[in-house]
Simulated scan of single mutants.
Amino acid sequence: MKDRLLPAAIIPAILDLAIRNRLNVETLLHSAEVDPGVLSHSGTFVSVEQQLKLFDAAYQGMNNPAFGLLLGESIQYHSLDLVGQLIATSRNVQEALDELFLFKDLVTPLTSFSLETLGFNAVLVYSVDRVLVKSNWIAHHDVMAASIFSIANAIIPQGLRLTKVRFVHTQPDYVDEYQRIFNTSVEFGCLRNELVFDKRQLSEPLLTSYPEYHSGVRARAKDKLKSIESRETLAAKVAYFISRNLGAAATQLEDVAANFNMTPRTLQRKLKLENTSFVTIRDQCRHQRALRDLSDPGVDMEELAELLGFSDISNFYHAFKRWQGESPGAYRKQALANRGL
């Protein structure tokens, strides 16, 4: 996944915040191995790893634990290139969220989203890939919540009427910043990251709605997704396919080969040319998903073993110990302790 490419749309927002805090942009770009050309050319791409490095470098340079909230607060829909345009020109809040979920890999491939309706509330749930985001993950939670709220307030007539905001991380020292930005009840140490709001807003028209323009932007967004896929190695494409479909669709060799219009033998041969194998990639995807889900106390271990494609929990146990060097139970205990749960 770290090899996956994405448009460099979010980088100017990071650099703008860095400049306002008197950080040297050249130093930041160099530390993240990002070509300065991303600042002068639209349509450029960076790897997920480069974006993570730049995020971490800016975070360290500012030396402000509220970095994620400040960055998210500064992001507007135009900061997100085509995805931002899709969101802003949607007919209503529901359609805007649908577009975010569908095209989120153009801006935030390490984040997963879902939407639930409970009683009078709509609940936007999101999670950050804890396997790949190894550092400053609280800041990643912060930037996601603050940017969604910031963009929503710019395009919804009366703003997003939040009733509660929940975070999985424990309460940090800068709790006043959360109150300043969200101006509602904020809870920490929860099972999920959630933005809870009045579900009637889902059908609320947007100030910036423009259906005729929207259809054209959507076509361009689809083309950009295809462009990203065409630049990636086959191994990266296979890993992405397996990661997205674990527990949702078949991910055996035959299924993955069919998705790429290849025979299993051809797929294995091409992966060998990239110095990897199907089994290696599938194990990496299973390992990453296991690490992520074991840090969630609401995930049942037997159900996780089944989701990952193991015939029983014993086989999952042995595989995890081979991957991680410790049992899944021991890993979960430490992961939950790190979260204060």
Rank of each mutant, 00 (worst) to 15 (best):
Leu23Cys: 13
Asp56Asn: 13
Glu177Arg: 15
Tyr240Lys: 05
Leu294Arg: 02
Lys199Cys: 03
Asp105Ala: 08
Ala330Met: 02
Gly119Asp: 06
Arg200Asp: 13
Asn153Ser: 00
Val125Ser: 03
Thr27Val: 14
Gln288Thr: 11
Pro172Arg: 06
Val238His: 08
Glu274Val: 14
Tyr59Glu: 14
Val131Ile: 11
Pro7Ser: 06
Thr111Leu: 11
Ala250Tyr: 07
Leu80Asp: 02
Asn275Trp: 04
Gly325Met: 01
Asn21Ser: 11
Thr251Pro: 03
Tyr77Ile: 04
Gln268Met: 14
Leu70Cys: 07
Val299Lys: 12
Lys237Ala: 08
Leu195Phe: 01
Ser40Trp: 14
Val217Pro: 03
Arg130Asn: 14
Ile138Trp: 06
Gln60Tyr: 05
Leu308Phe: 01
Tyr331Asp: 02
Ser79Trp: 00
Arg200Ala: 07
His30Pro: 10
Asn153Cys: 01
Ser295Asn: 04
Lys270Val: 09
Ser135Asp: 10
Glu99Pro: 08
Leu97Lys: 02
Gln334Leu: 08
Cys285Asn: 01
Asn315Ala: 13
Ile281Met: 04
Ala290Lys: 08
Gln94Phe: 04
Glu116Val: 12
Gly43Trp: 06
Glu254Phe: 15
Thr170Ser: 15
Phe278Lys: 09
Arg180Trp: 01
Glu177Asn: 13
Ile228Lys: 09
Arg265Leu: 09
Leu234Ser: 03
Thr276Tyr: 04
Pro205Lys: 04
His30Leu: 15
Gly119Trp: 02
Asp173Gly: 15
Gly119Cys: 08
Thr111Gly: 07
Leu160Phe: 05
Leu291Thr: 04
Lys321Gln: 09
Ile156Lys: 06
Ala221Ser: 09
